[in-house]
Design a protein around this nucleic acid. Structure first.
Lengths: 332, 332
DNA sequence: TTGTAGGCGTTATCAC
DNA sequence: GTGATAACGCCTACAA
């Protein structure tokens, strides 16, 4: 069913139908009513692709994410989708997988689908290969990065101060009397993972001085078993550990399990802190103290930027930072 | 950068460029090379919308989901996306919110975007309003429902025997010596919720006879606090409860917390079983016994059906059922 | 107020 | 092997 079909049935031209469909003026009220009735009767649905071809806008924004199963980022996707769709924008969500090549390919696919804007979920997109893909395939279009940034004229980034946030976590542990700390991290390829580790080291130095030992277990697989294994190893190698910070809540869940199996009690014997403040922090036991990296707030921030950019009033600010906060629960 | 631009630079016609872009025969190897080089040099990206306009296929399938944050269905979305994109199909994911009107609107939007097929995630799509929307807006296109079914010629459904699955859960509890059972369920509007409750009642009757009391708490909010509150109430009203089945893992997480606060020990005093076999079943404590409703397998099933349908060999089977299984962990 | 014509970027069908 | 030309469904001047 096209506007031509409707036009024929109404005995008018396609342009009149188009005007009615788009609520544009310049058509006789009676004709308008007649057309409206036919539109409804035949359940006319406009073809956005054809429309976009001429209007140069699909009212669609792309969201690239490595793996939509990551509960934490998914919260952000939900928030963004909610806000954008309330403004009439569709979101095209694409899983890229965990390779830079996949992510670059994702950028290309988004251009192929001619999205109006692109949102990159997560600091893993902050890398040269993705940057190159943006330059190649989306040089003009607005691109937004969640928890990351690329120095390109069309890119805007929202980051959080995870580094000093982790530093504060160390402060908290120190304040609770913890002295032998351990840091468990997933893949160190991510910029954000590296900066979190730095924050940990800075916290150690600031609280305990240069020669206090600390332990780092990195490149752990980003799931429960990863956290479990790392914690087991840590407790075995350094039985005096009394404080743990994990780069993700799910790792902390695994760590909690390992600690339990070792016969220790949280937080009496060991304190544990996670990062993300995700739902896992509530469902695990004891409920996990976690560094909230403001994914929801960042999502709102990005969404409003996308909209204002698309509606013609782009912000000249290219990078903003949100401040993390520690949500203290029962593991510290 | 369009094929015309490239054609001009190469000194050939747009048709030749199109042939090269689509790897079609009938162009001189040398010309082909020259065009290929230009394509790469200018980072040409085809406009899928324009292409779809003429080929009548966008190579895109739509996924409608009430709320992408629901970790359980998201696992399925991931699986589907993975399989479809390996076959060159993009997935357009749309959150509909929790109203039937929103879901119907979602169907319309999908037609607007001219998806090649539509996947409905969850039994909440099994309702008259959605059925009407499909008839109105997507009468011809293949529609697939995860964990649900609608009696329409273009609809295929994959369901699981949750009802008898829950019955088996009651069997398991009975076998563990549990006698005072309680069922906690989220919104009873969902077909699947209603059938699960039936399974519970049938299990009770089969194991304990007609006059053994059992307790049902329904229309609980689908989150931890919902499970927590319901369990608290249950324990207060019926302190002798020794077995609980929750319609979702996340509810069971809340229930576990309530039981802990009441001073009881799982599974010594009370057994708990969830449904979904989601990540929460692993992260909570004790690790939760859960009814696996085969979301991953269902997703694979749906994906292959979508593909074979789109590639021209549609299945004539309109509805299939997968069999649930109980994943026993530490709460029973 | 209405209709005609051109074009958006692509593919498909013909001639050449 | 190559290039016009006509769609695809829609919007937008512009003309009537």
């Amino acid at each position: 069913m096209t506007i031509y079909d409707i036009a024929k049935k109404a005995g008018v031209s396609a342009s009149s139908v188009s005007r009615v469909v788009n609520n544009k003026p310049g058509v006789n009220p009676e004709t308008r009513e007649k057309i409206k009735k036919l539109l409804k009767e035949y359940n006319y649905v406009a073809n956005e692709a054809a429309r976009g071809l001429v209007t140069k806008s699909n009212r669609m924004v792309g969201i690239l994410i490595s793996d939509i199963r990551s509960i934490h980022l998914t919260e952000g996707v939900w928030e963004i989708t909610r806000i954008l769709s309330s403004k009439g924008y569709c979101t095209l969500i694409l899983n890229t997988g965990n390779t830079d090549e996949g992510r670059a390919e994702g950028v290309r696919t988004m251009e192929e689908r001619s999205v109006d804007a692109l949102i990159l979920m997560g600091s893993m997109f902050e890398n040269p290969r993705v940057q190159e893909a943006i330059v190649q395939y989306m040089p003009g279009k607005p691109v937004f990065i969640m928890n990351g940034y690329l120095n390109l004229p069309n890119v805007q980034g929202v980051v959080s101060n995870e580094r000093s946030g982790i530093h504060s976590c160390v402060d908290l542990l120190a304040q609770k009397g913890r002295r032998r700390l351990c840091y468990i991290s997933d893949n160190m390829v991510r910029i954000s993972s590296r900066s979190k580790k730095l924050g940990f080291q800075e916290g150690i130095r600031a609280n305990f001085g240069d020669d206090t030992p600390y332990y780092v277990y990195e490149n752990v697989s980003a799931d429960m078993t990863g956290g479990f294994g790392a914690m087991m190893k840590a407790l075995h190698e350094h039985p005096d550990i009394d404080g743990v910070i994990c780069s993700m809540d799910i790792l902390a869940c695994g760590a909690l399990q390992a600690i339990r199996e070792s016969g220790r009690v949280v937080p009496r014997d060991i304190s544990v802190i996670g990062v993300d403040n995700s739902e896992f922090a509530e469902t695990c036991y004891p409920r996990l103290t976690s560094l909230d990296n403001m994914i929801i707030e960042s999502s709102v921030e990005i969404s409003t930027r996308v909209i204002s950019n698309l509606e013609g009033s782009p912000s000249s600010v290219r990078k903003i930072m949100l401040f993390t906060r520690i949500m203290e629960r029962d593991t510290t």
